[in-house]
């Protein structure tokens, strides 16, 4: 069973007879397995937020189905299994962190004792125990975002949907959110989030999906998606006077901790380099595959998609 599943999903905004219709989703097919961190990527206006809103019942699809843990999202009960953090949310500034979580607990019918226990647990999880009795009007952006995650977790959901959770945070704030998300995955939760900060997505996500013009154009694990762009061969014992010669065979050589690292792109001849290493008294410690960065992959994939669409129009 998938945590999230959409089939033939369409969403068009605009009045029935309006000429200015916006096709936000166009046959979106998405499958997110359980217990992964899934990064949902795409340029502005690609349909990320619309997809999230459909999953949460905030927007009604024009056509198609979406399911959460196998249940159609038309069924309001699906929302019992989901925690949600919207993009740039505002909180009631006159409430303290503790009062706000209490309010969220009341909405999902927790009794007073359960609420008290749960809010203490959550404040500790997001590192805000010290601010439990402070009014949220004085909270920093990072603290507010952590409060947002705490409220999303109030019902101990199996699926957590976050819309741009790390956008606008400083490095410390981003590190906090990353830590929390990784901990949640360890607890067996599924995390589905949209983001523009690809370096963070690359470090956190098990899987990514790329959406453009309302269609999923890529989906899979990072290893599956990114192309190999070369290899780093870590060696020891290569005669130092031979390294200048060796650099002509590969892209460059780095000396680090007594190792000579030969960096080869796909254009280099790996066999020649290996022979060179052994001929000069060296031995290979390990080879590390080099993959293109997610950002490069993302840009390449979006550009290809745009080009294909243009060609289709012409």
């Amino acid at each position: 069973m998938y945590a999230i599943e959409t089939h033939n999903l369409y969403k068009t905004f605009g009045w029935f007879l309006s000429k200015r219709k916006v096709h936000a989703l166009n046959n979106l097919e998405l499958k997110v397995p359980e217990n992964v961190i899934y990064g949902f990527l795409g340029p502005n206006g690609a349909g990320k937020t619309t997809t999230i809103k459909i999953l949460l019942g905030l927007v009604i699809p024009s056509k198609g189905h979406s399911k959460i843990f196998g249940i159609d999202t038309h069924d309001p009960d699906t929302r019992n299994h989901v925690g949600f953090l919207p993009e740039n949310p505002k909180f009631y500034p006159y409430l303290t962190a503790s009062d706000f979580l209490d309010f969220c607990g009341k909405i999902i019918h927790m009794d007073a004792m359960e609420r008290s226990k749960r809010k203490d647990e959550l404040l500790e999880k997001v590192g805000l125990t010290h601010a439990a009795n402070q009014k949220m009007e004085g909270f920093s952006r990072g603290m507010l975002q952590r409060m947002g995650i705490a409220q999303a977790l109030i019902s101990d959901p199996d699926l957590i949907i976050l819309d741009e959770p790390i956008t606008g945070l400083d490095p410390m704030g981003r590190a906090d959110i990353k830590r929390i998300l990784l901990e949640l995955r360890e607890e067996g939760k599924t995390i589905f989030f949209s983001s523009h900060i690809l370096s963070d997505v690359e470090r956190m996500c098990d899987m990514v999906g790329i959406i453009n013009h309302g269609q999923l154009i890529e989906h899979g694990s990072l290893d599956e998606l990114r192309s190999d762009i070369g290899v780093n061969i870590h060696t020891t014992g290569v005669a130092s006077n031979a390294l200048m010669e060796g650099e002509k065979l590969c892209d460059y050589i780095t000396l680090k901790n007594g190792e000579a690292i030969f960096t080869l792109t796909n254009k280099s001849d790996k066999d020649t380099v290996m022979k060179f290493i052994s001929d000069n008294g060296g031995s290979v410690i390990r080879s590390v595959k080099l993959q293109e960065e997610l950002e490069a992959f993302f840009l390449r994939r979006i550009q290809n998609d745009e080009k294909a669409r243009e060609e289709e129009v012409n």
Binding site: P76, R79, F91, C104
Partner: peptide, 14 residues
């Protein structure tokens, strides 16, 4: 607009 309501309306029957 500020999405404060989203904390409520994304709950069942919200």
């Amino acid at each position: 607009r500020e999405k404060t309501a989203h904390f409520i309306i994304t709950k069942p029957y919200g």
